[in-house]
């Protein structure tokens, strides 16, 4: 008897979501098979890489992560432009770190004005990431949504605790919601149901499964993402058929292993190489797990991941 290659059967499809609008529009998702199973289904959109930009000069980044952005680190607009022009970022994720009430506690108006400036300066879609403080994010992201009407931003993290108010602003000003849940498939489904009940259109939802770095529980993230895709694709679970966004770079670069200078931990090898490889490997794991868009930091890590993406999706 001739050998037959086993084949999965699918009855669901991941939604194709458009980030941004007009000439900057970027499509993600649309898969009809497990991640990178190009021999079983359609993978219409390659995994996209967004680069992160902070709204304030970072004070805890290791040298290796700062170096590529040394000339723009204090100017988010220039920083975002450099990511697009010099490093080919397919999207920008603006991290509103300075709005953290436990940090600089920058106000909503100021934050929104900066978001608008960055959005106006770049030709790629913009993802805006708050601090996961429900009260503050509600205030800031609602203002951002209003000021940036027409930009079709992706705004998040939108969690169960603040989904109503931020979701309503996203509906009102036509933005996409990044639905964020803490590494739990049942809660992920529940939040997507709630967003649907609220009236967020299904082509305006992307999912953040919550991710962590290599060495810090990424295997749990992997399992949850894998199970989400199984339910979405083989059980046709309509409330899980949304693309994944993975905000991984911050998780990687805050680890001890990515931050320790070479002199402090010579047994771990060259610090710069170490951080870059940790970011690249973490991102690679996530893309194998089903990530559709990965938020990354270091241009060298991005290069490595792009190679993998191109090798695996042709």
């Amino acid at each position: 008897m001739a050998f037959e290659v086993p084949k999965n059967t699918y009855n669901g499809k991941i939604r194709e979501i458009t980030l941004g609008s007009g000439p900057s529009a970027l499509k993600i998702g649309g898969e009809t098979s497990y991640p990178l199973y190009i021999f079983e289904g359609a993978v219409p959109n390659k995994v996209k890489i967004a680069m992160e930009v902070w709204d304030t000069k970072p004070d805890d980044w290791p040298e290796a992560a700062l170096e590529p952005f040394a000339d723009v680190i204090a100017d988010p607009v220039a920083w975002a432009k450099k990511c697009v022009d010099a490093y080919g970022a397919e999207a920008i994720c603006l991290q509103l770190v300075s709005t953290d009430p436990n940090g600089a506690n920058r106000g909503a108006d100021e934050a929104a004005a900066l978001v608008k400036k960055v959005a106006d300066a770049i030709s790629v879609p913009l993802i805006v990431w708050g601090t996961a403080n429900h009260d503050k994010d509600t205030e800031v992201l609602r203002k951002v949504a209003e000021v940036c009407q027409g930009k079709t931003l992706a705004i998040g993290p939108v969690e169960e605790g603040d989904h109503k108010k931020i979701g309503a602003a996203a509906i009102g000003y036509n933005h996409t919601v990044v639905a964020s849940t803490p590494i739990d498939i049942n809660l992920a489904k529940q939040l997507n149901i709630l967003l649907g009940n609220l009236g967020v259109s299904d082509d305006r939802i992307v999912m953040d499964p919550t991710v962590s770095s290599l060495g810090y529980g990424i295997e749990y993230c992997y399992s949850v993402m894998e199970r989400v895709r199984q339910a979405a694709l083989t059980q046709n679970d309509e409330r899980l058929q949304f693309p994944f966004i993975c905000n991984i770079s911050r998780e990687v670069w805050k680890t001890k292993e990515a931050k320790q200078p070479t002199a402090e931990a010579p047994e771990l090898g060259d610090a710069a190489r170490r951080g870059i490889l940790m970011e690249a490997i973490s991102a690679t794991l996530l893309l194998v797990a089903g990530a559709d868009l990965i938020i990354m930091r270091h241009p060298e890590a991005i290069k490595l991941v792009r190679e993998v993406v191109n090798d695996l999706t042709g």
């Binding site: 049942n186 489904k189 529940q190 149901i193 679970d237 409330r239």
Partner: peptide
């Protein structure tokens, strides 16, 4: 079908 707290509504 996958559990969520709204399983009776979907």
């Amino acid at each position: 079908s996958l559990y969520s707290h709204s399983w009776l509504e979907v």
